[in-house]
Each structure stands twice: as C-alpha cells, then as structure tokens.
C-alpha cells in the first residue's frame, strides 16, 4: 500500500477512469504512480500463465506495468495522467476477441 509522503499536499487533481471507475491523481504523476496511490497493485495478468503483475522498475525497462490507455498498450510508468483518459487492464491474450 502507498500513501502520500509526510508534508506532501495536493493542490489540484485530474480524474481519469480505470476499469470505468474514476481515479483522481496529481497532475504530472504517471499512470502507474496514480494507480498505486489509489491502492491498485495488480495491473495485468501475464499472457503466459495469467499470473498477476504490477509495476517493477518504474523506469520504462521491465514492461510489467503495461495497461491499455485509450486503446493502446502502453507502459503505465511512462505515461502521464490526463483528465478523462480511459485506462483499463490489457485483455487476456489467447481468448478470442471480436475483430
């Protein structure tokens, strides 16, 4: 679990949707930080064994924080939050989707 560090105060905030639920965050935060702060620790399930993963390196190297942002598969730690952005978990691979 994460919390704001002592003395850190939040003036304004942006709101985005994660799995259709509103999440508020400080402008400038990455999607990964915002989700961790909102107590979301499982970001995706692996395509190989469907095991749960969350952010690992926070610097764009490990690709464990992949999420869908407005339809694109992106690294949550390298993507800044924006008002109204739609974030969701990556669909589980190997299950048919409508094309």
């Amino acid at each position: 679990m994460f919390k704001l560090m002592e003395g850190e105060d939040v003036q304004d905030s942006v709101t985005f949707l994660f799995e259709n639920q509103p999440v508020s965050a400080t402008p400038g935060m990455s999607v990964a930080a915002a989700l961790l702060a909102a107590d979301v620790s499982i970001f995706r399930q692996t395509p190989v064994s469907q095991s749960a993963r969350g952010p690992f390196c926070m610097m764009g190297a490990c690709y464990d924080c992949l999420v869908f942002v407005d339809g694109m598969n992106v690294q949550a730690c390298m993507t800044k939050v924006r008002d109204g952005m739609k974030v969701s978990r990556v669909p589980i691979i190997n299950k048919d989707i409508e094309t």
């Binding site: 560090m5 850190e8 400080t26 400038g28 990455s30 930080a33 961790l36």
Partner: peptide, 8 residues
C-alpha cells in the same frame, strides 16, 4: 516523481 511512499 509522485511524492508517494509504501506504508509497510
């Protein structure tokens, strides 16, 4: 980058 810390 975000001013957040793990609690435990």
């Amino acid at each position: 980058s975000a001013g957040i810390v793990p609690t435990d």
